[in-house]
């Protein structure tokens, strides 16, 4: 991510309460992850100690401090999905992609993450690929779906 776009994001938010979180969210939205240099720049420009920037950046699961894969798989392990077999969904995806939650494969194809509740408990078990939600996920369908991603 280039310095100018980071500057633009910071200038837009400067002076607002809570601007640190908003700035990090926008950088992450644009860049998919938060490189160390970007955090240093945010610290310098918002005049927030780097330790506080790192604290916020590591406090939330949403913020990524390492590069992400091209496709993001989120598996809901919230309670409703848990009782409806989220573990089977997770096992299937782990088998098919060879990665565990929090990991990205070496080809940067998939990143896998468990999430707590996507708010569509009525469709559980739920998984989300690149923002698209799949309800009542069955292992065979998941395998078919994952084949579609490059």
């Amino acid at each position: 991510m280039d310095n100018d776009s980071i500057d633009q994001i910071i200038d837009k938010q400067r002076g607002k309460p809570g601007s640190l979180i908003q700035v990090l969210m926008e950088i992450q939205d644009k860049n998919q992850w938060l490189p160390r240099e970007a955090l240093e720049k945010v610290s310098e420009k918002l005049e927030v100690p780097l330790s506080r920037v790192l604290r916020i950046a590591t406090f939330y699961k949403t913020f990524k401090l390492i590069p992400e894969g091209r496709h993001k798989i989120h598996i809901c392990t919230g309670t409703a999905c848990h009782v409806r077999g989220a573990q089977r969904v997770l096992d299937t995806v782990q088998d098919l992609t060879g990665i565990k939650p929090g990991e990205t494969d070496p080809d940067l194809k998939f990143s896998l993450e468990t999430v707590n509740c996507l708010g569509c408990c009525t469709l559980g078990p739920v998984l989300e690929i690149d923002g698209k939600t799949f309800g009542k996920a069955a292992p065979a369908e998941i395998a078919d779906e994952l084949k579609k991603y490059e």
Partner: peptide, 21 residues
């Protein structure tokens, strides 16, 4: 100086020095 800070949350919480500082 803010040379050492908290990182992570919940049971993963740790202290960490900031090498730059």
């Amino acid at each position: 100086k803010h040379a050492v800070g908290f990182v992570d949350r919940g049971t993963g919480r740790e202290i960490s020095f900031i090498p730059e500082i």
